[in-house]
Amino acid sequence: MPDFMGTQAINMRIAVLSGKGGTGKTLVSVNLAAAAKVSTYVDCDVEEPNGHLFLKPEGIQEEEISVRIPKVDNELCNGCRKCVDFCNFNALAYIKDKLIVFDDVCHSCGGCVLLCPEKALTEKEKVIGKVQKGISDEVTVWTGRLNTGEATGIPIIKKLLVENSPQTNQLTFIDCPPGSACIVMESIKDADYCVLVAEPTLFGVHNLNMVYELVKLFNKPFGVVLNKCLQEENPAEQFCLEKNIKIVGRIPFDNELGTLNSNAEIAVNKNEKYRELFSNLLETVTKEVQHEAATNP
């Protein structure tokens, strides 16, 4: 643990988010975790989890995540089609005296099973993905993976966050899915602080605004990291100044960092200047959280 934290117990959950993919969420969360040394990194971007490519965790343990989907007993089914009409997701079809269930469209609401007058429907477990836990140096790495084509990753995120309910002396970094959909809301639900990563373009401002609205809605304390900063004017910075948003860090655009990152390497471990950059960011963020905790307990 970095010295500045002293002996004080650290127990914080920091979510890292951005309005769009490719902004630098994973860069920031992975390097913060590496800078913190003893910490936990949770990859909630379950459709495209990339954090493990950087952290390369070892000793992987995994658990499959299932949802319940309907199973039909065609002997009992009398073809009333009540379930077909009820299903708002169109996951059922009745063809040639047989009910067909489309697993990949089913949202596991359980409605069809509840309403079947013939009790022809029961439920079975269906694996939609998994969570993996491994170790990378002193970082505990949790990865959620949704199988391609599944309807929703929310059950996987729920599992990841339950497994990582607050522990003492532990910093937890949550790498969120991009955007501001319900899956992102689920990911930040229990976060103590949100770090919004923004690019220095008009596009970046538009995308930042989306997650800004989201964290405001959830009343989360937050700060912005400006990524890929050039010498030019930075509209994202302007936006923060106008809205009175705290800028917690600036990451310059530089070729070395870009190359390290595109090769899925952890910048903090490769170059002292990046270690310093992310350690400073970590310090700022931790102070912000402690400040929040003191002023808004």
């Binding site: 708002n88 609401c109 359980g110 409605g111 509840l114 309403l115 319900c182």
Partner: peptide
């Protein structure tokens, strides 16, 4: 509102 997926089970029960 955000957690609701619109399945209609609550209306049914």
């Amino acid at each position: 509102f955000f957690a609701c997926e619109g399945c209609g089970v609550c209306e049914y029960v």
